[in-house]
Design a protein around this nucleic acid. Structure first.
Ligand SMILES: [Zn+2]
Ligand SMILES: [Zn+2]
Ligand SMILES: [Zn+2]
Ligand SMILES: [Zn+2]
Lengths: 144, 144
DNA sequence: TATGTAATTGAAAAAGATTATCAATTACAT
DNA sequence: ATGTAATTGATAATCTTTTTCAATTACATA
């Protein structure tokens, strides 16, 4: 399910958070982007249109969105401190190492693999992380 | 294939690196550990037996082992700046969030999934990251 | 619409993690 | 044993992220 700006704003309101100009601009940028985002990159981008926005507020708002379950953390495709908008429904990510584009995908066989692993190792498995990286069609053209 | 202390030392020698007392102690610790290791944790552990070892040398030696292909990077089970000894053969990791124990496993179906993803998305896929986290038998006991 | 108040903000400082610098030390080929 | 280039640890520098705090602002209420 796609997350909309309106839904994020409504959730913030419901929890009693104020909708400041800074938060609105960050939410708009995060929701409308299909790319992997880092705090610094997001700050640089936003700072052009909203010169009065601070890096600290970007960190704080990303932390807030994360706590509310609106962010997926990404570890590959660059450094490993990036994120992208996403639902808490189980899914995985395919990330372009060139432009940062993120594609969500689902994988039915993880539950089975998890079951096998648990049986073989005696572990109680709580979570997993699966990411693919590569180059999207556009970026592959650029490489040639 | 399990990586031995002797093999790591031989590789260092072959590339012309000197086998200092510090490097030997770090190699011994890394090779003999089945756990996720961070530079700081490794430093604290080693510093007890070798008080003259510096944190910088731990960073440098881990970097060296990584360049030589002896380390696997780990992103889950704690912060995401840890590693463990491992071969470059494709494999994945199951990590205990309690004690940091790392179990290697293989998964035949990743190639197929990668092929499907590439076809559906037009991406040229280069790599992937798969980690499971949970609690090992010992740590599960401790939680009860 | 004006007001009160608690949440939010940005600047600056602090805290952590990692890397670069450099003189002293050390491994190891000879 | 000696010479030399690699390595080391202390220190400083760099980056990223968090904390602090006075000033500002959103928004409920009147
Ligand atoms: Zn990571
Ligand atoms: Zn791309
Ligand atoms: Zn491994
Ligand atoms: Zn454990």
């Amino acid at each position: 399910m796609k997350i909309t700006e309106a839904r994020v704003k409504a959730t913030l309101r419901r929890y009693g958070y104020k909708l400041t100009r800074q938060r609105r601009s960050i939410i708009k940028a995060v929701v409308s982007s299909e790319d992997r985002l880092t705090p610094a990159a997001l700050y640089n981008k936003l700072h052009q249109d909203y010169p009065d926005i601070g890096l600290v507020t970007v960190y704080r708002t990303l932390g807030l969105l994360d706590n509310l379950g609106f962010l997926c953390k990404l570890h590959t495709g660059g450094d490993c401190h990036a994120c992208t908008i996403g639902t808490p429904e189980p899914h995985h990510h395919l990330i372009c190492s060139g432009c940062g584009k993120v594609i969500d995908f689902f994988c039915r066989s993880m539950a089975e693999l998890e079951g096998n692993l648990a049986e073989e190792t005696g572990f109680t498995i709580k979570d997993h992380l699966l990411e693919f990286t590569g180059y999207c069609q556009n970026c592959r053209k650029d490489l040639m």
